[in-house]
C-alpha cells in the first residue's frame, strides 16, 4: 500500500467528489480500521458500526488531510475520535437512564465477546486502560511510529513512549507473555 497512491486517491476524492476513489481508499484500509476498533471496543458488531461512522467522518473531513504523515495514521485518528465520541454518548445515555430510575441493560453495554473465543490478547487488553489500549494497538498492531501515534492521539511523543512503557509493564506484571495464543 503506497503512500503516494493513497495521496493520489485522496486528491481525486477531494477535488472531484469522486466516491469511487474514496471507495478504493476504504477497501485498502478497512481491515486496519476494523481490527483497530475491534481491539478497542471488544465488540465486533459495534466495532464495524463505528468503522462505518469513521469512514463517513473521514469523507466529511478528507480535505483536512494535509498529506503530512501516513493516511492510515490520519484515519486511525478519526477512528479513535469516533470511538471516544461513541463512548461518551453511551455513558451519557446510561446516566440519563439512571437518573430516570431505569437500570441500563447490562448486556447491551457489554464489551466482552460472549460468542467469540477469548484469546490471550483479549486478556492482555483487559488489564490496560482505554488510552493505553489504543496506543498499544496503534503501535503493535498497526505499526504506527511514536510520532504518528502522537498526532493521532494529540499527545507529545514523550507521553506516547511512557504510555507504551506503562502498558508493557502492566502486561508483564499480569501475565507471562512468553506463552500465548495469537490474537
Amino acid at each position: 500500500m503506497s503512500a503516494s497512491a493513497d495521496n493520489e486517491l485522496v486528491a481525486r476524492a477531494v477535488s472531484g467528489q469522486d466516491t469511487a476513489a474514496f471507495g478504493e481508499l476504504v477497501r485498502r484500509h478497512q481491515s486496519h480500521v476494523r481490527n483497530f476498533l475491534r481491539k478497542l471496543a471488544g465488540d465486533y458488531a459495534l466495532a464495524d458500526d463505528l468503522a462505518q461512522d469513521c469512514f463517513m467522518h473521514a469523507w466529511d473531513k478528507l480535505q483536512t488531510y494535509s498529506g503530512r504523515g501516513s493516511f492510515i495514521g490520519w484515519l486511525l485518528k478519526v477512528a479513535y475520535t469516533t470511538f471516544l465520541q461513541s463512548k461518551r454518548k453511551s455513558r451519557r445515555y446510561a446516566q440519563i437512564l439512571e437518573s430516570a430510575g431505569h437500570v441500563a441493560d447490562q448486556e447491551s453495554r457489554s464489551t466482552v465477546l460472549p460468542t467469540e473465543e477469548v484469546t490471550d490478547l483479549d486478556k492482555y487488553l483487559a488489564v490496560l486502560s482505554e488510552e493505553e489500549r489504543a496506543i498499544m494497538v496503534m503501535s503493535y498492531a498497526c505499526g504506527l511510529s511514536h510520532r504518528e501515534i502522537g498526532d493521532a492521539t494529540d499527545m507529545p511523543v514523550g507521553t506516547v513512549k511512557s504510555v507504551i512503557f506503562r502498558g508493557k509493564q502492566k502486561i508483564r506484571n499480569s501475565f507471562d507473555i512468553k506463552d500465548h495464543k495469537h490474537g
Binding site: N35, M136, Y140, I177, K178, H182
Partner: peptide
C-alpha cells in the same frame, strides 16, 4: 519483547 508483542497484537486481515 517488542517482537513478541507485535506477534501477539497481529491479527488476520479482514
Amino acid at each position: 519483547e517488542d517482537r513478541l508483542l507485535e506477534a501477539m497484537f497481529d491479527s488476520k486481515p479482514l
